[in-house]
């Protein structure tokens, strides 16, 4: 019995290792392409990207295999000349059905959020999934205010989703009528990530302003 089980395990192990080895490069390439596509979508001016961690002590490190504790991952987008044109970060918040994961672009020049892309969601088709293409909603992210406060430890104004038609300030997100919960998830996802990332990132923008 042992011999047989050993044989079966051996064969199975071989098959698994073989397929893992065989597909490893293609999988990694696919993942990178998918990530790059998402970043290029929210930082359209970028021609190449770098992956960084914003660390607790106010420093920035190149992303390696292991993420240090308290690190927030982000992507820096550079133009052809190697100048920083934008930063992209991912965030998520609970929507109507499941977590809505989004990627948003941050423009250091205007200190605002520009463009969002949805990474994954399971919202109701026809209602919640309007966040992908509803023009009025996407117009919120042409220039969404994300300035830091004077102490540089939080956003000056919390990014908040408000009821449809009641957007008054530049840091508010106007919800889609009938899809308030999903819209709110988008606002919360941006706010959570921005609150965690920007206080660490903005004081150190100089360090990454040129492509290394």
């Amino acid at each position: 019995m042992l011999k047989t089980l050993g044989l079966v395990s051996g064969i199975c192990g071989l098959v698994i290792v073989g397929s893992y080895q065989g597909t490893y490069e293609a999988v990694a390439a696919n993942k990178r392409i998918a990530m790059e596509r998402a970043v290029f979508k929210v930082v359209p001016a970028a021609k190449s990207i770098e992956e960084y961690y914003a660390l607790d002590g106010g420093s920035i490190a190149k992303a390696g295999a292991e993420a240090p504790a308290g690190a927030v991952k982000f992507f820096a987008g550079y133009d052809e000349a190697g100048k920083l044109v934008g930063v992209a970060a991912a965030g998520g918040a609970k929507g109507y059905a499941d977590t809505v994961r989004i990627m948003f672009g941050y423009d250091p020049a205007c200190q605002c959020v520009k463009n969002i892309g949805v990474v994954s969601m399971r919202e109701t088709p026809g209602i919640g999934d309007k966040i992908v293409k509803d023009k009025e909603f996407l117009a919120n992210f042409e220039q969404l205010d994300a300035k830091l406060n004077a102490e540089m430890n939080a956003l000056a104004h919390e990014i908040k989703t408000v009821k449809h038609g009641s957007k008054a300030d530049a840091w508010q997100v106007d919800a889609i009528a009938g899809a308030t919960i999903t819209s709110r998830a988008v606002g919360k996802a941006i706010n959570d990530t921005a609150q965690a990332l920007l206080p660490k990132l903005v004081p150190n923008l100089d360090k990454i302003k040129d492509k290394s």
Binding site: V8, S9, C12, V15, I16, S19, G22, N30
Partner: peptide
């Protein structure tokens, strides 16, 4: 089950390699 799980794992990798979407 071990045999089936093996091939499922292999298929899992293949699909990731073909298309992440």
């Amino acid at each position: 089950i071990v045999i089936i799980a093996t091939f499922v794992t292999a298929v899992d990798y293949f699909i990731q390699a073909i298309s992440l979407a």
